[in-house]
Each structure stands twice: as C-alpha cells, then as structure tokens.
Design a binder for these strands. Structure first.
Lengths: 88, 88
DNA sequence: TCATCAATTTGACAGTCATCGAAATATCAA
DNA sequence: TTGATATTTCGATGACTGTCAAATTGATGA
C-alpha cells in the first residue's frame, strides 16, 4: 500500500465523526447520504466534506444514482490498511 | 477496548511523524529517546510531546533509567486496536 | 560543588481542520 | 416549467495541533 494512501487513511480515521460515518457505511452493503443524515446529526455540508475525505483516502466508493449518493466500503483497501498496520 | 482509548490511538497514528516514531520503537524491544534523536531530525520538545501522546494513548510504555527515557510498544494494546478495527 | 547532559515544561506561532450557513447545482415529480 | 429535494461549493470561523526556542528540572560524574 502506498505511503500516501496509508497516511490519508490514518488521518481519515482520526476524526471520531468520520469514523462513525465509515462504520455505518461498513455495516451495510451500501448506504445513502440521505439515510446517514436521518441517523446522524450533521449538516449536509459537513457530511459532504467527510464523504470526500473518505473517498479520497480510498476507503469508500461513491455511486451517484439520480439525486442520491450511495457509498460503500472498499473492503480491499481496508484489508490492505489493516495488513500494513499489522506489520508494526 | 474503551472508546476513549480507541480514539486516542487513532489520533496518535494520524500524524506521520508520530507514526514514524512508533514504528521505530516497535522495531526494537526498547528504544531510548536519545537514540531516537540520533535517527530522526526532531527537537527535544517535539519528541517529548509525541512521546506523551503515544503514552497517553496507551501505545507505549515509558521507563526512566537515570537520565534516559526508554520506550517500548505495548503489543497487547496494539493487538486490541487492530482487533477493534477488524470489526469494521 | 559544579558543569554537563537528557528530558520536560512553557509560551508562542503558523498551519490545519471540523463545522455550518448560504448560495449554487442537479435531478426529479407534478 | 416549476417547485421540491439531495448534494456540493464557497467562505468564514473557532478550535486544535505540530513545531520549536528558551527556561527549567533532574540526574550524573568529575
């Protein structure tokens, strides 16, 4: 795994709210932003920001369908990250 | 693993330099601050700061011997952290 | 005792970042 | 077309944080 991505992931996980978001995405096969906002008290702007960070880190894949954004965890990347950490 | 500790660890790992420090500690059974400063370009103040963060997160144990501070990785905590992440 | 060395503390600074309101964009449904 | 809804972008703000110099503490050995 690339150093750059490794660092992005570490940073992405450092914010509790962002980790919470990632958790909820991981708990389902896919999750929509609009559903996230039903569950978490967060402004659209902030959610959009966090989603971008998670996507940028390669942790999630974003799919746009009509007006809705669907997100899902990239298990492969997640596994790679864990493997990298396990080397410590 | 406690949520508080989990978050502290995630934050501790988010800074590249701090992760580098942790890596170097993990690579040996034990490492002294004075040796760290031979290897890494870092001021005493900054190193002291990072060591405190890592210790606060429970990631390392600090032992004082004479004028020197020796650090070592807490493998147990590290394992717990990985296990927690793996649940995602 | 005194000079030296490791480490910590303090204070300050610069840069980063989470947050949100408001405006803009995009898409759907009527 | 028009009104409604989902999301993004922009701008601002307040809080956090990594960094280090300087002063301090603590311990050693000469």
């Amino acid at each position: 795994m690339e150093l750059k991505q490794f660092r992005r992931i570490a940073k992405a996980l450092a914010d509790p709210r962002r980790y919470e978001i990632l958790s909820r995405i991981a708990a389902k096969k896919e999750m929509a932003c609009v559903d996230m906002r039903c569950v978490l008290p967060i402004s659209p702007a902030t959610l959009s920001h966090h989603v971008k960070e998670l996507e940028n880190a390669g942790l999630i894949e974003v799919r746009k369908e009509a007006r809705f954004v669907h997100m899902k965890l990239c298990r492969k990347v997640w596994k790679e990250y864990l493997a990298q950490l396990a080397k410590l």
